[in-house]
């Protein structure tokens, strides 16, 4: 199986970028309610936990031996992912940001994210599988300044006016979780 992304026209790539850059700007501008409108109502938002696994001896010499998939305890595993959320929980998180008694966001974090390496990996009749990477700088008074790094594995639905997110799996690059929260929108 080819590891190459699907060949896309410059226009199609530009459409995807436009969508993701808009999304990034909404999140960094703390416009979470508008961000919610980019989600499908049956969205699944998953963050697998990441474990230090024992290497399988029989896989030695092969790329699969150190495949990152072995490190992920995701939705289908019998481990415990960090997040397995639908629209309701995402909405709860988004709305919480605008309550004056959300103490841990007071004052709110300053974030800036760069989204890149946007690759269309597969295309169905109206769905797209898209990979993207992000670096997210996070600064909050009283907390250390933090860099989050990760990959997003999205399923997008194409609509007449753009895309909506049907599924997002976020693979975070941490060893120990020396991060103030995994409760952000990545």
């Amino acid at each position: 199986m080819s590891t190459l992304s699907v060949e896309v026209s410059p226009e199609q790539q530009r459409q995807l970028e436009r969508f993701y850059f808009h999304e990034a700007r909404l999140l960094d501008n703390r416009q979470y309610l508008q961000w919610l409108t980019l989600l499908s109502e049956d969205v699944r938002y998953i963050i697998p936990s990441r474990v230090n696994v024992q290497v399988n001896n029989r896989a030695r010499g092969q790329e699969d031996m150190i495949s990152i998939e072995h490190e992920l305890e995701g939705e289908d595993s019998m481990g415990c992912p960090h997040r397995e959320e639908g629209y309701m929980l995402l909405m709860l998180r988004a709305e919480r940001a605008y309550k004056i008694n959300s103490w841990s966001e007071n004052p709110p974090a300053r974030t800036r994210r760069i989204v890149g390496n946007i690759e269309l990996m597969a295309q169905g009749s109206d769905t797209l599988s898209v990979l993207s990477n992000f670096h997210l700088y996070y600064a909050r008074p009283g907390s250390d300044n933090i860099l989050y790094s990760g990959q997003r594995r999205d399923t997008l639905l194409s609509q007449t006016d753009g895309f909506c997110i049907v599924r997002r799996e976020v693979v975070l690059d941490y060893a120990a979780i020396e991060l103030p929260t995994l409760g952000l929108f990545f």
């Binding site: 960090h82 997040r83 397995e84 103490w103 841990s104 103030p180 995994l182 409760g183």
Partner: peptide
């Protein structure tokens, strides 16, 4: 998810606890 949604590093409640603990 009874645990992970509200507690642990992504927990919507424990993100408030961990902040005050720090």
């Amino acid at each position: 998810t009874n645990y992970s949604s509200f507690f642990g590093p992504a927990g919507i409640l424990e993100q408030e606890d961990s902040e005050v603990w720090a």
